[in-house]
């Protein structure tokens, strides 16, 4: 497997292979040792006591964790949709022919990309109460800590996604836009029909990595009392009756985060393959059994 040459590396020779094997074995031993030590210490300090783990068997606790997961996913879904829309708009604005539009978008992007997300979320959480001039105005932010979290995540990730999309668009061959202009398309049409779709496709791996970051950053909601996964874990960990099972809770919730991110990465791989059919060729699969030519849809199932 490691013997194949890639674009980046020559195929390793015999010496490199031996060296890589030694480094591999050493690395694995080191990791396993570290892990064993952590498990040993946890055991010694009673982190694996049944008192600390029993609560996870109770349906009420499971329901709590599930609600936390739902809250996390809800904030994530909203933030992803908003940040992609905002990103597309900002990317288009930064590539505008009109200088004021370009400048405004650049200022916006620079500001929100530089602003630490936590400060942004705190500000959005605290400021509306001081800004509420008319009764009811901005109440939705006051009433539900999800909104400061979602808006903060959307602003920050929107600017990052905008830069990803812009890079994708700039990397396209110039001939794509020239051919479009030559047909008589207007600038916004060239953007909408030709450049943005292709730019997003080519940057999809990066865009989805940023979504993984967005998912993980929903945990900042715990600081403003949004009852997402981390918040639930902290609450669980403070239950005296179960012997303050903070570490078990962290292990459980951490695992949920990791699984969620892995699912998202899996979706990314699938989506990339699905969308790149157009480029690499939507190869028609021959169904061996019936001998029929199947459409592209059949190629991706299984």
């Amino acid at each position: 497997m490691s013997q194949k040459a890639t674009v980046l590396f020559d195929a390793p020779g015999p010496r490199a292979r031996r060296r890589n094997a030694i480094i591999g074995v050493l690395g694995i031993a080191l990791l396993a040792g570290g892990l064993a030590w952590v498990v040993y210490r946890f055991d010694q300090t009673g982190q694996f006591d049944s008192q600390k783990w029993d609560p996870f068997q109770y349906t009420a606790i499971q329901q709590m964790i599930l609600d936390g997961l739902k809250a996390t996913l809800k904030a994530f879904a909203l933030a992803v949709v908003f940040s992609l829309v905002l990103g597309a708009l900002l990317a288009a604005a930064r590539l505008s022919d009109h200088r004021p539009v370009r400048w405004a978008a650049t200022a916006f992007v620079t500001f929100f990309r530089a602003m630490p997300l936590l400060i942004l979320i705190f500000f959005l959480y605290l400021a509306p109460a001081k800004l509420s001039y008319w009764p009811g105005f901005l109440d939705f932010i006051n009433d539900d800590p999800m909104w400061p979290l979602v808006i903060g995540l959307s602003l920050y990730n929107g600017t990052v996604q905008a830069e990803n999309m812009r890079a994708g668009i700039l990397a396209l061959p110039k001939g794509q836009s020239e051919a479009a202009y030559a047909l008589g398309l207007r600038k916004y049409q060239v953007m909408t029909f030709i450049l943005v779709p292709q730019g997003i496709r080519s940057m999809l791996p990066t865009i989805i990595s940023q979504m993984v970051v967005t998912l993980k950053d929903t945990s900042l909601g715990f600081l403003i009392t949004y009852e997402e996964l981390l918040f639930i874990a902290k609450r669980l960990g403070s239950y005296q009756d179960y012997g303050l099972p903070l570490i078990p809770a962290a292990i459980v919730v951490g695992t949920i985060y990791i699984i969620s991110c892995m699912i998202l990465s899996g979706v990314a791989v699938w989506l990339e393959r699905f969308l790149s059919r157009g480029r690499k060729g939507r190869v028609q699969k021959i169904d061996v059994v019936s001998g029929e030519t199947l459409g592209a849809g059949a190629g991706i199932s299984v």
Binding site: P173, G175, Q176, E178, A179, P197, Q198, R201, R279
Partner: peptide, 14 residues
């Protein structure tokens, strides 16, 4: 109203 055909085809890849 003016068609153009390029050396590198420039078909829309997507």
């Amino acid at each position: 109203e003016v068609g153009m055909v390029f050396q590198s085809f420039n078909l829309f890849a997507h």
